[in-house]
Each structure stands twice: as structure tokens, then as C-alpha cells.
């Protein structure tokens, strides 16, 4: 497994190079630059800004300059506010991570429970409820779900707030953030549900299908014939095996949730990385676009690697 892990980490290098190169040239191929607005800057000001941010050379020169800086772990600066991209990511990512962890916990809990209950009661009431919820979850895009949740639970029922809480950094050494969150649930529930509902629906469907398949396997029949009760069969034999497909999708879902959602972060006014990334694209803030893309690529690659490693732990038949 160690050799496999090293090979996979080494394989990240050409992958990241490809991501950076494609993003760099695509970004510059799009019309409009960071200093374009209806109020054009005078020539001297524009020239100075282009020189300051290394936009005055040819595209090839700019690319080489960017790659050289990247090799030194320098992600550049934002053209809008001159802040280092690393500092922006360091500020925003914990916010998205914080929200994403809750959304992931919600998605896994809600999705697994619904999926398992539905499979155990196939074609029963709970199964129909699960199928209905998972269909609704898959059909409702976040930009509809979020305003709907706000309208219903914040404006009409007054249970929760429209605006989110301050999602501060989380820590494994100082757990005070958990107390903060528990006392600010009114501001945290809706963003969590809005972000986690779609993956929860997906996980529920996958879990249901996987459980149904496992429950029909010979080893389940053998376990029952040995006299194990239903609870033991489900908990000890069915769920563990049914979780492998869920694990496959959990990694990318986790990566997707913690890297931020523009729609949810905008809908609840959360200062996360997703919002920052989309704004940087709109503003042609090349430094932030590139830095965030590299960061996303690393996170997603690492999550995929962890999922592959987890296979071997969950299923001994898999050899890496």
C-alpha cells in the first residue's frame, strides 16, 4: 500500500501541471481583463497595474513566470485587493470546510438512514418516502432549494435566520467552536440542509440499491440460517458490504462540499471559498482563479486517493 500511495502522489504532479496549464490558457482566452470596466483607467495607470501584476509580457512569458512562482509555492496575489492568494484561501477555506463538514455529516446520516430503512422495507411506506425524498433532492437545484428553505423556515415559520452565522475556523485542539455552533443553530441549520440535501438524496439512493443487492446475497441467507437475528444480520453483514459503493461516492461528495458552493454561500451570505472563486472568475482576478483551481485540484486528488486507500481497509479482497 505504501508503494501504491507514493506512486499516486507522484502521479499528482503531471495532473496538477495539466490542470494549471489548461486553466491558465483558458482563463486568458476569455475576453475581458481584470482592469476592464465601463470607467476605463488612463493608459499610465493601466500600464503600471499590468506591470505590477506581470500582465505586460507575452502569454508565454506570463505562463513561465506563473509556473516559476508556483514551484516556489507562491500562488500570487489578488488583482482586486492585492492580498496574497494563499492568505485568501487560508481565510476562506476554513469557512467552507466548516459548513461542508456539517453538510457532509447531514448528508451521510440522512442518506444512510433513509437508504437502509428503505431497503429493509422495500416497496413499503418508508421505501416510498425515501424514493420521494431522494427524487425531490435530486430534482431541486440549490438555487431553488435555498430560497425555498429561507422563505418557509426563516420568513414564514421564523424558526431560523436568513443570514448565516460567522463560520469561524475549526480546530481539533480548541473545541470552543462546537459550543459556538450549538448556540448559533438558528443561523447554521438552513445552510447545512441546503448544501447537504442533494448529496443526502444521492447517498440514500445508492445505499438503498446497494443494500437491496447485498440482502439478496448467499452469505446473508447463510447468516440467517445460522440463527442470527435480523438486527445482527443487517448491522454485522449487510451494511458493511453495502457501504463500499457509498464510500466510492463519499470522497468526491466530501471534496465537493468542503470546497464551497457559490450558490449556498451567496444565498446565506457566507464568506467561503466557493463564493470567492466564482467572484474571481467574474472579475477576471487571475491570481485567485489560478490559486483556487490549484487548491481545488489538490483537495479533490487527495480525496480520491484516500477513498482508494479506504477500499482496501473496508474490503480485504481489494489489494493495492
Amino acid at each position: 500500500m505504501v508503494g501504491y500511495t507514493i506512486r499516486r502522489i507522484l502521479a499528482l504532479i503531471p495532473l496538477l501541471l495539466a490542470v494549471v496549464t489548461v486553466t491558465f490558457f483558458l482563463m486568458h482566452a476569455v475576453q475581458g481583463g481584470p482592469f476592464d470596466s465601463d470607467r476605463p483607467l488612463n493608459e499610465a495607470t493601466r500600464a503600471r497595474l499590468e506591470e505590477k501584476y506581470n500582465l505586460d509580457g507575452t502569454l508565454g512569458e506570463q505562463y513561465v513566470h506563473y509556473m516559476r512562482n508556483l514551484a516556489n509555492a507562491d500562488l500570487g496575489v489578488s488583482f482586486s485587493n492585492d492580498r496574497p492568494v494563499r492568505a485568501i484561501i487560508a481565510d476562506r477555506f476554513p469557512v467552507s470546510l466548516h459548513l461542508g463538514l456539517y453538510a457532509f455529516a447531514f448528508a451521510i446520516t440522512f442518506g444512510l438512514v433513509l437508504g437502509i430503512v428503505a431497503a429493509l422495507h422495500q416497496n413499503g411506506r418508508w421505501d416510498y418516502v425515501t424514493v420521494f425524498l431522494s427524487t425531490v433532492g435530486a430534482a431541486l437545484p440549490p438555487f431553488i432549494l435555498a430560497p425555498f428553505l429561507v422563505w418557509t423556515f426563516a420568513l414564514k415559520l421564523d424558526w431560523f435566520n436568513v443570514l448565516s452565522s460567522d463560520y469561524g475556523p475549526i480546530s481539533v485542539t480548541d473545541w470552543s467552536w462546537i459550543w459556538h455552533d450549538m448556540t448559533h443553530l438558528q443561523q447554521m441549520v438552513l445552510p447545512t440542509v441546503a448544501l447537504g440535501f442533494l448529496p443526502a438524496a444521492f447517498i440514500a439512493r445508492v445505499t438503498r440499491a446497494s443494500m437491496l443487492e447485498v440482502l439478496r446475497q448467499d452469505y446473508i441467507r447463510t447468516a440467517r440460517s445460522k440463527g442470527l437475528d435480523h438486527f445482527q444480520v443487517v448491522m454485522r453483514h449487510a451494511i458493511r458490504n453495502a457501504l463500499i459503493p457509498v464510500l466510492t461516492i463519499a470522497g468526491p461528495i466530501f471534496a465537493g462540499l468542503i470546497t464551497g458552493s457559490f450558490i449556498i454561500e451567496r444565498a446565506f451570505s457566507i464568506p467561503g471559498l466557493g463564493r470567492s472563486f466564482i467572484e474571481s472568475v467574474i472579475n477576471r482576478d487571475y491570481g485567485v482563479i489560478m490559486g483556487t483551481t490549484v487548491f481545488f485540484a489538490v483537495i479533490i486528488s487527495v480525496m480520491n486517493l484516500l477513498v482508494d486507500l479506504a477500499y482496501a481497509i473496508v474490503d480485504p479482497r481489494i489489494r493495492l
Binding site: P147, V150, W151, L155, D158, N161, V162, L163, F268, S269
Partner: peptide
């Protein structure tokens, strides 16, 4: 100064008495 990009979200927050 509560930073809210989307004015529609701000209007909802206003209706809810948050701003």
C-alpha cells in the same frame, strides 16, 4: 456593515428583522 452580495437575500434579511 453586514456584507451581503445578493440584494434579494438582503431584502429577506430585512423582512426577517436581521438588518
Amino acid at each position: 456593515l453586514r456584507y451581503i452580495d445578493d440584494p434579494a437575500v438582503a431584502t429577506q434579511a430585512y423582512r426577517a428583522g436581521e438588518i
